[in-house]
Every structure is written in C-alpha cells, then in structure tokens.
Amino acid sequence: MMTTIILCILVGIIFLAYHTTYVKTSTVKLTIPSVPPLTLVHLSDPHGRIRFWNGELHKLVNVHEPDLVMVTGDLTQHSGQLARVLNQLAKVKSKDGIFFVPGNYEREAGRFQKRVYSAAVSRSQKEAWQQVMTVLENESAVIEKDGSFIWIYGFDNSIYGNERHTEKEIRQANLTIFLAHSPNIISLIHNEGLKADLLLTGHTHGGQVRMFNRTVGAYKHFHIGQKEDPFVGVFGISRGTSRLPIRLNCFPEITVYMINPS
C-alpha cells in the first residue's frame, strides 16, 4: 500500500514537472500583403528560467531561424538573474534583431513582497538590456526588409499608466507590430483607435493552470494564444516560459509567427 502511494506521488511530481518545464512551440501562419516572407519568434516572461525539459532557450529559438525575435518583458524574478538570462538571449540568432519591452519585473523584484528598483539600478539594467536587444520604451523601430518597411512600436506598460503612443510612422509601414508586456494595452489601443497588423503581449502566463480548456488561475478574462481584432489584426497573448509556481495543462510556450510562408 505504501509503495503504491509513493509511486503515485512520484508519477504526480513527474507529471507536473513535465507540464511546468517542457516548452511547446505554437506556430501561427499569417498572410500580410506587401511584405516578404518572415519568421517572427515571440518570447515572454522567462522570470529567470533559461533551461527546460527539452533544451536551452536559445536552442529552442534558433532552430526556427528567425528574422525577428520579440521579447515582451519579465526577464527575471530578481536582478541577480539578469546576466544569466541576457547571456542566453545573446546566443539567439535573429537576422534582423531582438526587440524588447519591459515588464513589471523590470521595475520591481520579489514574489511576495515586491520592492521597486532605484533609478540607478534601473539605468544599469537598461544599459545591460541594450547590449543584447533593441529596447522600446514608448519608442519605435523601423526595419527595411526587401523593400518593405516593418514598423515596431513598444508600449511601456510595465507600470500601468506609463504607456504612450505616437502615430507618426504607422501610415508609412507595410507591416505594423505593437509590443507590450500586459494585454491590458488593448484598452488604450481601442480607445485611441490605433491600428496595427499584430499585437504581441505576455504577462498572464496563460493563467498557469487550465482544466477543461478553461483557466483556473488568474486572468480568466483574457484569451490564450491568438484572436482576431479589428484594431490590431491579430492579438497574441503568450503563455510565456516561466515555471512559477507550477503549470498544469498550460505548457511554457515559444510562439512562431510565419508571415507569408513560401
């Protein structure tokens, strides 16, 4: 009897560990006229986690040979993990760059009792991010690709109310991509009537626990994955790659957007 109980406990632990640390790849195919074929990888919410059941983060990304990589915040759980995470992202091979918007854990640390980073620590961290990625804090970047212009705008909603926007380049782009950490940004986008082809966010971790295809944990009011939206074309919310505290039926995720695949 005791042996059976121990065996059941071990099986349960392995089952939860698998759901919590095995990264799945979600592939989304999109048709967007006037841009060349592109492979875009979306990462979010690693919270310091760079190694998984099925490999290191950079290897899981590089196998897709991305043109662009988008990272939507919460790189670490605390600042002591930052160098290790950035070293991993530095190994990512993205033909046209890695683009980053900060999350709430870029502004504060701690799980139960959070403390806000000082201005000096924030500056130091931003300098470290910029060594590896293009940082967009209410800023834009424009990429020319085979004669087409890709406009990437990053909303800084790492602190609610901090997000700003500009409409300057939107009309000039063949492809417009919005980035934000929290999917709450959709309210500002709708209220302001902003337009894009793709919005990428994270923050929710997919709720971490799902039963009967429904979120049991937090953020039940947000969808998981992609849905059509009249303002941003496709609104994507990543489950992220974090493992906190456990996951069930909500695997860590790397999302690969294949735009105009040949």
Rank of each mutant, 00 (worst) to 15 (best):
H58S: 13
H58N: 12
N62M: 10
V63W: 04
P66T: 05
D67N: 05
L68P: 02
L68E: 03
M70T: 03
T72L: 01
T72Y: 02
G73I: 01
S79E: 09
S79T: 13
N87G: 12
Q88P: 11
Q88R: 13
L89Y: 08
K91P: 05
V92I: 15
F100Y: 06
F100S: 01
P102R: 02
G103C: 04
Y105E: 04
R107Q: 09
E108P: 03
A109H: 11
A109L: 10
A109E: 11
G110S: 07
G110L: 07
R111G: 14
R111L: 15
R111Y: 15
F112C: 06
F112P: 06
Q113S: 14
V116G: 08
Y117F: 11
Y117I: 03
A119H: 14
A119Q: 11
K126S: 13
K126W: 14
K126P: 06
E127A: 15
E127S: 14
Q130E: 15
Q130R: 13
M133W: 08
V135M: 04
L136C: 00
L136I: 00
E137R: 09
S140E: 12
A141T: 08
I143P: 00
K145E: 03
F149Y: 11
I150C: 03
I150M: 03
W151K: 00
G154W: 00
D156K: 00
N157P: 08
I159Y: 08
Y160C: 10
G161P: 05
N162T: 10
R164P: 08
T166V: 12
K168M: 11
I170F: 09
Q172E: 13
L175E: 00
T176C: 01
T176P: 00
F178I: 01
A180P: 03
S182H: 10
I185L: 08
S187C: 11
S187T: 15
L188M: 15
L188W: 13
H190P: 04
H190L: 13
H190V: 09
L198Y: 05
L198T: 02
L200S: 02
L200A: 06
G202F: 03
G202V: 04
H203M: 09
H203K: 07
